[in-house]
């Protein structure tokens, strides 16, 4: 049976969601996304440079007919700014799913939880499908899922830090109580970090810097694709328990005397 990633009303084959920031150019963005196998791609909303508007547009490279475009509210520090950004994004005609992030601190980029909850409440009321970026706090995750968010997206570690999952125990608690998909968002550094998230039972992983910031982003994109697939399969297969002492793999009978 095919293992599909169900998110809101849609099903996806890939459990890897990738960002489009920090690439050298749109060509590299396009190639990395292709190599990642991702079907959901995050984008940011920004002012057009009106003195030089004839530059290429991201959507000329990332076809919205082929990919689910997930606009984010990166850079918003207040609930109303995030809501405003989402309303603009929706008008672009790429659907009603948004990655909500309301930042609370410039240095850590940790979320402002009261503002995130407030923005989520307004956006859900307005018919958005809300995927909120949160810290690895089970209480907040629970509030967001109860409110009607389509997923919860706890961070592994600070955005762009590449530290991997800092508090697997909290992620486990979030997973245990989850009624919506859990997507680890931010802080993944390399393939094993993504695999660990998936082995733990997360439904997906969202990343940008880990791919775009690698020396060879396209090769790393492929590594992440494989890591997410491997981790997911390992989770479904069910790992052996960890034990302190050895258990022989070869039969004990018939050993030469």
């Amino acid at each position: 049976m095919e293992d599909l990633f169900k998110l809101a009303e849609s099903s996806y084959k890939s459990r890897l969601i990738v960002g489009t920031g920090k690439y050298k150019d749109f060509r590299e963005t396009q190639k990395a996304i292709e190599a990642s196998g991702a079907e959901i791609v995050t984008v940011a909303v920004r002012r057009v440079n009106i003195t030089d508007p004839n530059k290429d547009n991201l959507l000329d490279y990332i076809n919205p007919k082929k990919y689910t475009i997930l606009p984010n509210t990166a850079g918003c520090y207040a609930a109303d700014e995030a809501v405003r950004t989402c309303r603009l994004a929706r008008e672009a005609g790429v659907g009603k799913m948004v990655k909500l992030e309301v930042i609370g601190d410039e240095r850590t980029l940790f979320p402002d939880i009261p503002a995130t909850l407030e923005a989520a409440r307004i956006l859900i009321r307005e018919g958005f499908v809300v995927l909120p970026y949160v810290n690895d706090d089970p209480v907040t995750a629970k509030k967001l899922q109860e409110m009607g968010c389509a997923a919860v997206m706890p961070l592994a570690a600070p955005i762009g830090s590449g530290l991997g999952i800092r508090n697997p125990y909290n992620i486990w608690i979030i997973l245990e109580q989850a009624t919506v998909p859990v997507i680890v968002d931010a802080g993944v550094g390399t393939a094993s970090d993504a695999a660990i998230a998936m082995e733990m039972g997360c439904d997906g992983v969202l990343m940008n810097t880990a791919i775009a910031g690698a020396k060879d982003p396209i090769l790393m994109a492929e590594a992440m694709k494989l890591a997410v697939e491997a981790g997911r399969k390992a989770f479904l297969a069910g790992r052996v328990p960890k034990k302190l002492y050895a258990t022989a793999s070869s039969p004990l009978e018939g050993i030469l005397g």
Binding site: G19, T20, G21, K22, Y23, F26, T29, T42, V43, A44, V45, R46, R47, V48, I50, N57, L58, L59, I69, P71, N72, A74, R87, L88, A89, R90, E91, A92, V94, I159, A186, L206, M207, N208, T209
Partner: peptide, 28 residues
């Protein structure tokens, strides 16, 4: 307020209007 695309043609800019023109860029 978001201006619907259908209204671009008929909306005439007035003194003191604040216009934001945005698009999607690379982001995570």
């Amino acid at each position: 307020d978001v201006l619907s695309r259908d209204a671009f043609e008929d909306t005439i800019l007035k003194e003191g209007d604040t216009v934001e023109i945005v698009h999607f860029v690379g982001g995570g």
